[in-house]
Design a protein around this nucleic acid. Sequence first.
DNA 1: GTTGAAACGACACACCG
DNA 2: CGGTGTGTCGTTTCAAC
Lengths: 155, 155
Amino acid sequence: MEGFLMDEIDLKIVSTLQKDARISLKKLADICFISAPAVSTRLTHLEERGIIKNYQTSIDYKILGYPIKAYVSLRLSPKDKDDFYPYIKSVGNVISCDCVTGSYSQIITCYFKSTRALDNFINDIQRFGETKTQIVFSTSVIQRPLELNPGEVYF
Amino acid sequence: MEGFLMDEIDLKIVSTLQKDARISLKKLADICFISAPAVSTRLTHLEERGIIKNYQTSIDYKILGYPIKAYVSLRLSPKDKDDFYPYIKSVGNVISCDCVTGSYSQIITCYFKSTRALDNFINDIQRFGETKTQIVFSTSVIQRPLELNPGEVYF
DNA sequence: GTTGAAACGACACACCG
DNA sequence: CGGTGTGTCGTTTCAAC
């Protein structure tokens, strides 16, 4: 990461795109009070520097037949790490996996078509260590962007 | 939820958009082997029916000055629910909050500029109940779309 | 970063299977 | 009814400043 600083306009671009990735360059330009080509070059830079990682569409997995969301915690034996990482990447049901502090060292977020499918998955990963599963009942804060122009945030 | 079925083309549209939300209708049309207007009407339907929820840009929060990611579990007293939900929605650091099975009934995913900021947050929410915090060290599966045209998935 | 022109893509309509 | 094809309009891109 080079010694570089985002200005107000970059921040406006990024936070606007977070909320609507399909907005046109022209509209972005109007919002930022600069020209469309200027937005375009800034976008390219933001992408090249890895600040913008990708553009995703969020889907209602429930409607699409994946009603089961779960957090699976896994106490991963250090010796199994090299086997575990490629494996967990290969499972299409898994949308994120983080190594965390605490006795359960991996937190896996995943979606399934049924509790039976979830159960199969859990049985499978138990070869890597002890697991704890928490199935999601309801979601009060749906996956959303981090607030970059902070109103109500902690410092 | 009407008695409606996604066909192969809808699935192709959705899974393509998941990976690149800024793709043009024309490219989508080429990929799906149909015309651009046809893609356009399908997109509108998918949005109207809530299968496509929104288009987000994923950002490297680390580079932007939020290096701390954490999962905070909260044992929420039922009587505090009505206070908790509006509050947790208002915190810009929180990107998701799920009600789950198990003794810690809420799982909060959040980002912070520092461990001190995280600490302030935790101290604050402890008025709602006991908490357990797991800070993310490293991420082996970065937030990614669910695999809809499944290769390696559990049934 | 801005402007303007040219290339490109998106949208609305009438037409065809 | 849903897909295709044309025309118009808006958007992106490139060159010159």
